[in-house]
Amino acid sequence: MIINSSNFKRSLNDIKNNKFLHAVTFITIMLSILIVGTFVLFASNAGELLDSWKSGIKVIVYLENNISSSEKDRTRLEIRDFEEVEDVLYVSGEKGLEDLKNQMPRQKAIFENLKINPLPDSLEVYLKKDKKDIGVIENLAAKIEKFQSVTEVEYGKEWIGRFVKIISFSRLAAISMGAVFFMVTVFIVANTVRLALYSRKEEIEIMKLVGADDRFIKSPFYIQGILHGFTGGAGGLLLLFILFFIFSSNISHDFSSLIIKIKFISFKTLLSILFCSTLVGWLGCYISLKQFLRNT
């Protein structure tokens, strides 16, 4: 591809002369990027939410009632020796009940009427930062459950599993949608270029007759494709930002107590999306030009 003022001028002239065709391509790329960007935005925020929840994950280990203090201590130390464990805290039944009362002040009366403390002694197991995956937690829980001194292990298996599934699904959806829209957009750009090529068939034949090589003929089309991809991508991301801004302004009033603040796509991801949309423009041109110049 030769990028010079003459080829750039030829590209812009063609865009000026075929406004409708080029507008359709631009809008198609823009909308595709908007849709893909929405999925990426959702996936990245959901991922962050999961990470934030994961940081609060602890495994509660309920101990048998009739074991000695030394056995409780031995259990605590043995659990602490597992490589995925950061720390283990002992919580007596009394302390557990006290914490519960503080957490549920409106139900204080119910707790005060209790004749016996229903809560057993427990251990709160805190995991290392990089060991908070559901698989690791499940394995650890299985290992702890084998202890004679342990009656039950609790770690919110249900909600973690469901949430991980939702996150994985949304990531998969973002990738799948990205792939589908990539192909659809490449196809549309390729068709736009093909139409432009057929409308300029005679011009291209004349250029060939006066000694222009394929590179010279192709260059303005590649410039157009790259311009379509880049501007369409930038337009889509700008539209996404505007919609995000409106949405996040409203949601912050309604859900001000959300654990995490909803963030826009990171700069690095934005650049990657922009690069992909530019690649779409280039690829659409490449496919059409290869086919067209082979047939002329």
Binding site: N17, E203, L209, V210, G211, A212
Partner: peptide, 23 residues
């Protein structure tokens, strides 16, 4: 066989542009 979307100047210049002459 002049290219209708190009000016007279551009139609003539295209031969030199295609062979990589300087502006």
């Amino acid at each position: 066989k002049l290219i209708p979307s190009m000016t007279v100047f551009e139609n003539v210049a295209i031969v030199l542009e295609a062979s990589g002459e300087k502006k």
